[in-house]
Amino acid sequence: MAEAAAGAFDRQIGQSELEMLQRTLDRVCLWRDIPRDGRRAERLAGYLTGQFRNGVCDEATLFENAMWLERPRSTVVPLRRGMPLRTLD
């Protein structure tokens, strides 16, 4: 099984697969308001490529996973155990 995973990682990404990854990246950047020329977009592209090479080949699943990765983070943090939550300023 490890050999199969390594083989999948080493294989070339075809033109149609590359176009699908680009479409997914473009959609996530649009929905999450991510600048296309920044480090965040580069990290997202690496994430999508890694997901694809690890066997996630469905465009909808890649999109959902990337949207989850780039979800807005909460600004509510606990002060300490048993204390109420407060928002960060």
Results as ranks from 00 to 15, higher is better:
88 L>E: 12
78 P>N: 04
39 R>F: 02
18 L>R: 10
38 G>P: 06
40 R>C: 03
62 L>D: 03
48 L>H: 03
70 E>T: 03
38 G>N: 06
61 T>M: 04
56 V>P: 01
72 P>L: 07
46 G>F: 06
86 R>L: 11
49 T>I: 07
71 R>V: 00
78 P>G: 01
40 R>E: 05
12 Q>L: 14
36 R>E: 00
89 D>A: 13
82 G>N: 06
70 E>F: 01
82 G>P: 07
54 N>Q: 13
26 D>N: 14
6 A>E: 13
17 E>M: 13
21 L>A: 04
20 M>Y: 12
16 S>V: 15
22 Q>G: 02
72 P>Q: 09
49 T>R: 13
33 D>H: 10
69 L>D: 06
28 V>Q: 00
29 C>T: 09
5 A>C: 06
31 W>K: 15
21 L>D: 05
12 Q>G: 08
77 V>A: 06
2 A>F: 12
53 R>Y: 03
83 M>S: 07
3 E>I: 06
77 V>Y: 00
17 E>I: 04
58 D>C: 11
41 A>H: 01
59 E>F: 04
83 M>N: 05
45 A>V: 03
59 E>A: 08
46 G>T: 04
73 R>P: 08
22 Q>Y: 14
53 R>V: 02
61 T>C: 13
52 F>T: 08
29 C>K: 10
86 R>W: 04
42 E>M: 06
85 L>Q: 05
27 R>E: 14
89 D>C: 07
3 E>K: 02
87 T>W: 04
53 R>L: 08
62 L>I: 02
83 M>T: 00
1 M>D: 11
64 E>H: 14
69 L>W: 10
74 S>K: 02
2 A>R: 07
70 E>K: 02
15 Q>V: 14
41 A>F: 04
76 V>L: 09
33 D>T: 12
89 D>Y: 00
39 R>E: 03
43 R>V: 07
7 G>C: 05
86 R>H: 11
44 L>M: 14
23 R>V: 03
58 D>K: 06
22 Q>V: 09
4 A>R: 15
63 F>K: 14
22 Q>W: 14
76 V>M: 09
71 R>N: 04
54 N>F: 12
54 N>P: 08
4 A>C: 09
38 G>T: 05
48 L>K: 04
10 D>N: 15
52 F>C: 12
84 P>E: 05
12 Q>K: 15
22 Q>F: 13
10 D>W: 12
27 R>D: 15
60 A>H: 09
61 T>S: 12
65 N>H: 10
62 L>V: 05
15 Q>E: 12
76 V>R: 08
58 D>A: 11
79 L>M: 09
20 M>S: 13
70 E>W: 01
82 G>H: 03
18 L>S: 15
43 R>G: 08
50 G>V: 03
8 A>D: 02
44 L>K: 07
11 R>Q: 15
68 W>Q: 14
86 R>V: 13
32 R>G: 11
18 L>H: 13
58 D>S: 12
7 G>L: 09
42 E>H: 11
53 R>T: 03
51 Q>D: 01
63 F>A: 10
20 M>Q: 15
50 G>P: 01
